[in-house]
Design a protein around this nucleic acid. Structure first.
Lengths: 166, 166
DNA sequence: CAGATTTAGTTGACAAAATCAACTAAATCT
DNA sequence: AGATTTAGTTGATTTTGTCAACTAAATCTG
């Protein structure tokens, strides 16, 4: 299992590389949207109430970072912000029609690319890939829940544990 | 297969998130090394002749970005740069002992984490995960070779196709 | 219910990391 | 030998994010 772990670390490095920023840049550079903005737009689309905290979590930034991302999305006409009616502290982010269209376009490009890759694989292999990768992601989530894995904890040994996320 | 592609895009998004920068930050923030520096150090270790172009490719930055990364690694005492003897234009980056040690430490932490995740999975599932993920990464590589996928091509429709990578 | 505390978000000052464009110098082509 | 290409560097700037201090709404507590 030691060697499996090693293999997996390297495989995931490769995947992260192939599908990370640089890949997204390929899809997005014409759209002029950063990875953080992309992720924020995604949660804004998928949740009917998307707070700054949600954006911070999803884009792995602090809450001030989330504010900045939301502002950029607003400036680009991709999302709107408005106060929540029930809790006045909360700022809801919702994608505009333009934002939805953009997200859709990027998504389709990613899907096309993935489709081509999958087409090169044996169908049976595809099936077990999906099954086992699902199991893996569940295991990751499980582990992070077990750890109480919030972003703040990562540098907890440092001087200033969580200055911006409290 | 359409739905498989969709699932896979989402699974990879999750993995990229879980093992991306924010994860590495967790491992590296005490070491004070960025993701780009980490990747650069990795190629420098894995190739016995690591050029700036290699770093640029691996960290997904322009060649000026690569210069800056190499300089930072040098400043931190993690790598050395020296002119190649055969081709005087080439600048070779090699990790120092300190760099090697650091890379090892980070690697071990990643391995530990991966080990814990894998431990939560069914052994048979682990096996097919490794097998199918290997097949997937091979398919990705295949496809990228087929596309002649170099970073410069990504924005080729823009005004200024590849200003810094020529 | 009033005052204290917590929670959600914003903002100014700043830092990190990358880009662009213009450059040097070595190698290669003609 | 001169022109071109290739590898890398550098100054000015941009992008993106952090930190710390702040506002304001909600909730707790006596």
């Amino acid at each position: 299992m030691e060697s499996q772990a090693r293999q997996l670390v390297s495989l995931i490095e490769n995947i992260t590389y192939a599908f990370g920023m640089q890949s997204l840049d390929g899809q997005c550079c014409n759209e002029n949207i950063s990875h953080g903005e992309f992720r924020a737009l995604q949660v804004a689309l998928n949740q009917n109430l998307c707070t700054m905290q949600d954006i911070a979590r999803s884009a792995a930034v602090t809450k001030s970072g989330a504010t900045r991302i939301a502002k950029r999305l607003e400036d680009k006409g991709l999302a709107n912000r408005q106060q929540d009616h029930k809790d006045g502290r909360i700022c809801c982010v919702t994608p505009t029609e333009k934002g939805r269209t953009l997200l859709n376009r990027i998504d389709n490009q990613l899907m096309d690319r993935m489709g081509e890759i999958l087409a090169a694989m044996d169908p049976a292999m595809r099936d077990i890939l999906i099954i086992s990768l699902n199991a893996f992601v569940r295991a990751v989530e499980q582990k992070e829940i077990g750890d109480g894995h919030e972003r703040e904890t990562c540098c907890a040994m440092g001087v200033n544990p969580f200055p911006d996320n409290g």
